[in-house]
Design a protein around this nucleic acid. Structure first.
Length: 472
RNA sequence: GGCGCCGUACCCAAGUGGUAAGGGAGAGGUCUGCAAAACCUUUAUGCACCGGUUCGAAUCCGGUCGGCGCCUCCA
């Protein structure tokens, strides 16, 4: 790593680029909001996990020992404002005839399969909300003891008027909040932005998940799980918390209020938020049902990593437009990339341990600079391409730098290789026949065979070193 | 109403004061029997529009127009 480079990240708390300094030298506590498992993740959701993976890989590239915690929200949540609507898990269960637990399990598995296909490094700790109810209750007790709650209509509420810093992440102020509230207000709330810590009064029938608590049998409010589990695994103050931009105003704002009301300490130092994927100028969302899953991309013939490459093409803090045309461009680019790397492999003798210097070093350092500048992946990709196209660099050296960069890209370039397609006897005979035809200058016959082979999925290329073939 | 994001070539997309990265697509070329692949060259005197600041602005300030998100479960 180039001397004097420091990682700079855009902190949503304060809205500016800041140099990253961990609480404990050499170690990072990272919490990333995970999925609510009542449906498949869509590629918009996955964009955020890809961004977080780049962050995780970057931290590890910088030799930090990262403890990465991700929650799985397998408790049902309301589909609407506080006391209305239906539990999302219940809706899922009703549609499929499964229990809520089976639904949670099924979609949790599907989610982590997606992450695997996207080459997203698995979190150090994955924690399910339903397995941490006691942690949540304990935290709520502390919040209550510190005087931030009130109990009304069967539910325990967080009183935001008791927390002067409320809204600091989202640049909100309490006066505006009252004026701006347009949602039909829960009558029990003193302030429209108060939120429930623990429900005992639910208006759904057949609430499937219930636990005993000091406030009665019920279930936790949504926000409390992240506060409780992150504190459990990362301590009362930790380094980085990530999520999608949609979480800034409510979820993360409420998490901060709860956590800091309980501990009296600053909870998180750096907040990072990924912007949305949009399609023809509308966001992709589960409730709008305009969403595309990773599986459906595969059914259309794309590789999960095509989508990963696509996401790398835009900065994580900018909305990115999705279209199949652009995904095609990403796929072509990635295939070209794999091709180049595969050729490099063929050209390099793998015994090089000489130091990276000259142009190779220049490209690598540029990459590092762009990486540390708030994870500028588009620029990093540009460095990768400039490296690949630089003719002054020896193949083996080039390859080493490529693989070095790929520690962060996570495009699995290591696995790139020229495919050796073994032809069966019939095809081999055709190939030989074509060779003969060409020697005899019977090009009509030769071209005929080329078409024939293409129909079999084999592309023929005549090179100065003889004929070469590959799969279509 | 409040809080935010954005408008750069045919498409995607970097660039936050010093004269427009990269990818895809297109065009021309080298090579080839022809292709393919590869390689080379090429494609924005201009960054929504109008003012302003400055020696200098896509970049800063003000305004206009347009697109999007959050404020209700959501990445």
């Amino acid at each position: 790593m180039k001397q004097g480079l420091a990682l700079r990240l855009f902190n949503s708390l304060g809205r500016k680029l800041q140099e990253f300094t961990p609480i404990h030298p050499g170690k990072v506590g990272l919490y990333t909001c995970g999925p609510t498992v009542y449906n498949f993740a869509h590629i918009g959701n996955l964009k955020t996990y890809i961004f977080e993976d780049i962050l995780r890989r970057t931290l590890e590239y910088l030799k930090y020992d990262v403890t990465h915690v991700m929650n799985v929200t397998d408790v049902g949540h309301l589909s609407d404002d506080a006391d209305q609507g239906e539990d999302r898990m219940m809706i899922g269960a009703r549609k499929t005839g499964k229990t809520v637990w089976e639904i949670a399990d099924f979609f949790t598995n599907a989610f982590f399969r997606d992450l695997e296909h996207l080459h997203i490094v698995k979190p150090t700790i994955i924690c399910k909300a339903t397995e941490h109810i006691q942690d949540m209750i304990d935290l709520i007790v502390r919040i209550e003891k510190n005087g931030f709650t009130y109990f009304k209509g069967g539910n325990l509420y967080f009183d935001i008027s008791k927390f002067p810093d409320y809204g600091k992440l989202a640049n909100l102020n309490l006066a505006d909040l009252k004026a701006g509230a347009r949602i039909e207000v829960d009558e029990n709330k003193k302030n429209p932005h108060d939120f429930v810590l623990w429900f005992t009064q639910s208006k759904f029938e057949h609430q499937a998940m219930l636990w005993d608590s000091p406030w009665g049998r019920g279930y936790p409010g949504w926000h409390i799980e992240c506060s409780a589990m992150s504190i459990r695994y990362l301590g009362e103050t930790f380094d980085i918390h990530c999520g999608g931009v949609d979480h800034i105003q409510v979820h993360h704002t409420n998490e901060i209020a709860q956590a800091e009301a309980a501990t009296g300490k600053k909870w998180v130092n750096y907040w990072l938020h990924g912007e949305f994927l949009v399609t023809s100028n509308a966001k992709m969302s589960k409730s709008l049902e305009n969403f595309i899953t990773l599986n459906s991309l595969k059914e259309r013939g794309y590789d999960a990593l095509d989508y990963r490459y696509f996401c790398l093409g835009a900065h994580y803090r900018k909305q990115q437009n999705f279209s199949f045309e652009d995904l095609d461009a990403a796929r072509t680019a990635r295939n070209n990339l794999l091709d180049r790397v595969a050729r490099l492999k063929k050209q390099s003798d793998n015994d090089s341990s000489e130091p990276i210097a000259g142009n190779a070093l220049r490209h690598l350092e540029s990459f590092q600079e762009n990486l540390l500048n708030d994870l500028n992946m588009p620029k990093c990709l540009s460095d990768l391409w400039n490296l690949l196209k630089d003719e002054k660099i020896e193949p083996h050296l080039k390859l080493r730098v490529v693989l070095e960069m790929d520690k962060v890209f996570g495009l699995n370039l290591e696995a790139a290789h020229l495919e050796d397609v073994v032809l069966n006897d019939k095809l081999m005979r055709l190939l030989n026949e074509r060779d003969e035809a060409r020697i005899n200058k019977d090009y009509t016959r030769a071209d005929e065979i080329r078409v024939q082979l293409e129909d079999e999925g084999i592309i023929i290329e005549d090179t100065p070193d003889g004929v070469r073939w590959r799969r279509k």
